[in-house]
Structure formats: C-alpha cells, structure tokens
C-alpha cells in the first residue's frame, strides 16, 4: 500500500514551500495563460516569454492550490525555463507519460506509445519525485495541471518557430 512518503517527497514539499520563478511578467511581450481544475479549484497562472529563436526565455508562475499542483508548477518552471519550445513539448509528453497518460495513444498515433518511447532522450531530474503521485489516482490531475496549462500557453504563443 502506498504511503504518504511516496506522495509527499521532500523535494516536492520544498518546491511547495519555496516555489521557484514565482511572480509575473509584463504582457506583452509575455503571454499569460491560466489553468483551472474545476473539481477542486486548483489554479495555475503562467507568464511565458518565448523569444524569436523559439526559446522559453522567461517564465513566471502564480496561482493557488494543493502542494502537488503548486510543487509541480514550480518544478515545471525550473525544468522549462531557458529550453527551446520543442524541448518543452517533449518534456510535457514525458511528464504525462510519467503520470501514465500517453498522449500518442490518445492521439491515435502508431507505435512508440509506451512509457519508454515517451521518455526517450528526456531527462526528468527532480520531476521524477512526482512519480509517486501515480499511486494516488485522484491527485494525478493536480500534478498535470501545470503541464496542460504550459501546453496551452505554448500553443497560444504565436511564435512562428513552434515546430517539433
């Protein structure tokens, strides 16, 4: 039976207590995107600044919610900041795979939809601490909120260089 320590790893509590990249950016040039979990009221606000080279040059986070949603947002910001958009998208896919959500399967694509394929060539680092969430199915949506919001934000950022 999964215990609390599987869910609340120290690194997660650290990000919850001291969120990285907390704040706001001027809109524009930054793009603001909000994500809500209608069932529990978790809220994630992202400010994304994607430069002409297609790199997430700056990113700030805001919002409120449980430790898992807010820690995941903080960890996401640390992982994505300074990365090319294409890499950020790979990370989104890999993180969701970690949460047992396989995008490629949902999209009806052909082979390569297993965890190994989704994770291939992606270093999750600290994010792996969130893997314990999978054992608590109702909390998966808390962990993925930031990533779905990021995905929406990248789609909405009308940068010509967004191509994987």
């Amino acid at each position: 039976m999964p215990g609390l320590e599987d869910l609340y790893r120290e690194i997660i509590l650290d990000h919850y207590r001291s969120p990285r990249n907390k704040g706001e950016l001027a809109v524009p040039p930054a793009h603001k995107v909000e994500g809500f979990n209608p069932l529990c009221g978790d809220e994630v606000v992202l400010y994304l600044e994607v430069n002409a080279d297609g790199v997430v040059e700056d990113l700030k986070i805001n919002g409120q919610g449980c430790s898992i949603s807010q820690a995941s947002t903080s960890m996401m910001s640390a992982a994505v900041k300074g990365k090319p958009v294409a890499e950020a998208r790979k990370l989104i896919r890999a993180f969701k795979a970690l949460m047992s959500i396989h995008e490629s399967k949902l999209d009806g694509e052909s082979d390569g939809s297993d965890l190994a394929a989704d994770l291939e060539g992606v270093k999750l680092g600290d994010l792996e601490a969130l893997q314990g969430v999978v054992k608590f199915p109702v909390r998966i949506k808390c962990a993925t909120l930031a990533w779905n919001t990021l995905s929406q934000g990248l789609d909405e950022s009308e940068e010509p260089v967004i191509s994987a």
């Binding site: 609340y8 069932l39 529990c40 978790d42 919610g65 449980c66 430790s67 608590f136 909390r139 808390c142």
Partner: peptide, 24 residues
Amino acid sequence: HAHDVSQVLDEDGICVRAGHHCAK
C-alpha cells in the same frame, strides 16, 4: 491546502471532504 489535509487524514482512516463543496 484542503487536499493535502484530506490526504493525510485518510492515512488515519478519516474521511473529510476537500474542495469548494459545489458552492463556488
């Protein structure tokens, strides 16, 4: 957060509701 409260209480076999209680 209420979710975290509820999660830890569950370890002790205690069921409480967490969220907006359908009264946003």
